[in-house]
Amino acid sequence: MGRTLLAVFLMALVSYLPRVTPLAFLRQKIKSPFLQSFLYYVPYAVLGAMTFPAILSATGDTASALVGFSVALLLAFYEKGLMTVALCASLAVYLYQFLMG
């Protein structure tokens, strides 16, 4: 538990530092378009890399995960809300496992 709490503390630290450093210490704007672009794209790349292929092992079996993945992709493509996409994907996985398992 001590190690977990230390990890939580370190995570809190590196979550706070990027937020506080510019606000408290820097008063100028980032000029470099390269750095601006890099930082702008970070959340998208992270979301992509975190989701795939990890999603394939999120439900206990690959087939049901693929079903949930497809449902999520389809609903997201039609720009449904976060909650709708999440719940429908879960429901699809649940039904698939219920019917096939």
């Binding site: 949930g68 809300g81 879960s90």
Partner: peptide, 28 residues
């Protein structure tokens, strides 16, 4: 089995976050 089904919730949310901007921007 319900916990298994909810395991995909988070990833589904990520997909919901990333697909709409990806539709609009070639770069994304």
């Amino acid at each position: 089995n319900l916990q298994n089904a909810l395991g995909i919730t988070l990833y589904a949310m990520f997909i919901a976050l990333v697909v709409p901007p990806a539709k609009k921007s070639t770069a994304v």
